[in-house]
Design a protein around this nucleic acid. Sequence first.
DNA 1: GTGGTCTAGACCACG
DNA 2: GTGGTCTAGACCACC
Lengths: 121, 121, 121, 121
Amino acid sequence: MNIAISNTSEKPIYQQIFEQISAQIIKGEIEKGYILPPIRQAAKELRLSIITIKKAWEELERCGLIYTVTGKGCFVAELSSDEIRQKRDEMIMKQLVEDTSYYKSFGLTIDEIFELIKKVY
Amino acid sequence: MNIAISNTSEKPIYQQIFEQISAQIIKGEIEKGYILPPIRQAAKELRLSIITIKKAWEELERCGLIYTVTGKGCFVAELSSDEIRQKRDEMIMKQLVEDTSYYKSFGLTIDEIFELIKKVY
Amino acid sequence: MNIAISNTSEKPIYQQIFEQISAQIIKGEIEKGYILPPIRQAAKELRLSIITIKKAWEELERCGLIYTVTGKGCFVAELSSDEIRQKRDEMIMKQLVEDTSYYKSFGLTIDEIFELIKKVY
Amino acid sequence: MNIAISNTSEKPIYQQIFEQISAQIIKGEIEKGYILPPIRQAAKELRLSIITIKKAWEELERCGLIYTVTGKGCFVAELSSDEIRQKRDEMIMKQLVEDTSYYKSFGLTIDEIFELIKKVY
DNA sequence: GTGGTCTAGACCACG
DNA sequence: GTGGTCTAGACCACC
């Protein structure tokens, strides 16, 4: 559980948590079958409301990255590397389609986009 | 004035308008010195509140893309192509920084990002 | 009639005209008894609405700097240098009181104000 | 929160509020990290519309004097005394440029301006 | 609870 | 005619 929260960001906190944990799962930094900390404990550690944590957990479950066993806790889903890769591409693509359409709306060519990304990277 | 509003989008309406008009100005689709439609007329055409339009116009003015003359209307700023280019890169960079940090969080290399963008483009 | 108008300024146009002409009268750049150009002509020269010019002339008359003779035109008032000086101080003081109270509201000492004015001057 | 509103002033209400609060922050009368009253409460207290308060808060945020955390409130920014001083001079300079150009238009020298300010102070 | 957005009116100064 | 400001409600997402 290594999460960095920014209060000033425009992104809602629950989404920041969701993105970071999902990235960690997909990168294999959290092993399959691992039990996520109980909501109450996570809330305490991150000094956030339980509601906020719950919302992040729900998002993760909706994506199939974790599953809840009532009374026992939330487990990281045991996915094959193919499934993982598929989920990763799904999540990234969803974002990518939106992003590129934004860049294209300014009349940028694909090469100009690459140029700018290189600068940022 | 060719604006498409999505009520289901997460983006606030005023920002959708801002983005579309700013893109049109930057692409040169709206010529310099052109008078934007009066806010009341725009509000009526798009079936929006005056304040929503006003907010979009204010953003445009803050970016230096238009200037308003009270009692006369809102004019597209007369910028050099260099200034336009600079403003364009500014706006895109702001978005790009956020986007790439998202991709990076999944462990994507810059080449993998290029690969994906090519597919989408 | 040497007037510079800024459309982008926040100051209303009629006030810009008023300020510039009154300053010219007070500095003696316009001689006493001089006939101001007819409203219609001034409006044409400055490419402004007649209403705008009329409003500026009215302000000048309210300040006693010009007087209107119906059918003949607007004349620069024939004031003694004492009267001129008094009017000048009146106009400046009115502005000054407001300005200094603004600076004071930020907790500036009089010396700090002088320092800043020197920079600007 | 000690705000005095003048309905007769030419200044828009939201700007009066902005100026008073920004002055208080800059003078250190409101401590860093302090939470501004919720916009709805402030609106009620001052008997103003929520939007009017919101506009004032937005100006403060644009100047970097406060930052808002959605769902939590608006906090006074934690700036170093240098940053504060810089912001103060910025705001005053902006006003000062306009003011001095007005005085200069009447042919006043810098010393005459000092003389008058001393009188008023 | 908080702020973010939006509506459908209104009055005013300016041109 | 224009934009500038303001009101008194409303619904939403987030915490």
